[in-house]
């Protein structure tokens, strides 16, 4: 089938970008979206032109590296799917597709469809973990986890950190990403000691990185390739309220440990 692509081309963050039109006369419906771009790039290289830059790695929908916007929809039109798992049979002959990078202040553009998502790493660094240095653990079955808690934790832990939630949100908010981690760890008994400190630190970093605020319109969850639920956002908000109004400050006796 024939597909017309308009791909956002931008050499780097400083230079201006624009859509470049590419006609793909022979697209196989069995191709993945990225394979379609591979073939385009192969043609461009053979014509001595610069191939389209996009991030990708596992191509199984789990590493979270890939992602761009297809006709305004992060990861394209199929629900619960990364763009690497989106196949061309989803489109029809003659379709015109506009490809744009994730657009957010917190995700500076690097080149073409590739952006810098290190802000998400910094949110995790702020508190998206359980402090459990290697060797400090007790026998695994000493920590019992109720099945519903484990399932809820797993639902949220399925986040692949691709940034589609930020891209899909009109406000470029990272609430779904941040709250998925808060929900994953906060549902587990191991995550309780740091639960309230975690949410405060992660929210502070999220704000500092320049993400927008959440207006609960649900585009993030709809675009999420792992369909992370909006409930995690409610959970984050609840924990944040507790952290602000209920948590006791750390009171050190000043006696030292001797």
């Amino acid at each position: 089938m024939r597909i017309i692509l308009h791909v956002w081309r931008q050499k780097n963050a400083q230079s201006p970008g624009k859509f470049e039109r590419y006609e793909r006369p022979e697209v196989s419906p069995d191709m993945s979206f990225l394979e379609m771009l591979d073939v385009l790039n192969e043609d461009l290289v053979n014509k001595n032109e610069q191939p389209v830059v996009f991030d990708h790695d596992c191509r199984e929908g789990i590493c979270g590296a890939c992602g761009f916007v297809v006709n305004g929809i992060a990861h394209g039109p199929e629900d619960g799917t990364t763009v690497c798992q989106l196949h061309m049979r989803k489109f029809k002959d003659g379709d015109e597709l506009y490809l744009e990078p994730w657009r957010a202040k917190a995700f500076p553009l690097v080149r073409d469809l590739l952006v810098d998502r290190s802000a998400l790493d910094r949110i995790i660094q702020a508190g998206g973990y359980i402090t459990a240095p290697t060797g400090t653990s007790v026998d695994a079955n000493n920590i019992l986890v109720a099945k519903p808690d484990q399932e809820r934790a797993m639902d949220a832990a399925a986040c692949i950190g691709c940034g589609a939630c930020v891209a899909a949100c009109p406000n470029a908010s990272a609430m779904l990403f941040t709250s998925a981690k808060v929900t994953h760890l906060g549902n587990l008994p191991q995550g309780q000691p740091e639960r309230l400190d975690r949410v405060e630190a992660m929210v502070a970093t999220m704000d500092k990185e320049g993400f927008g605020s959440c207006t609960l319109i649900g585009e993030c969850s709809a675009a999420c390739p792992k369909s992370i639920s909006m409930d995690s956002i409610a959970r984050l908000n609840g924990d944040y309220i507790r952290a602000t109004f209920v948590k006791r400050p750390l009171e050190l006796s000043g006696q030292g440990s001797g």
Partner: peptide, 21 residues
């Protein structure tokens, strides 16, 4: 030890209804 370590970190391994792994 690996399983112990991973559980302590919050890896959501599948559980039985009694809460065990």
């Amino acid at each position: 030890n690996i399983i112990d370590q991973c559980v302590a970190q919050g890896v959501p391994f599948a559980r039985e209804y009694g809460g065990q792994l």
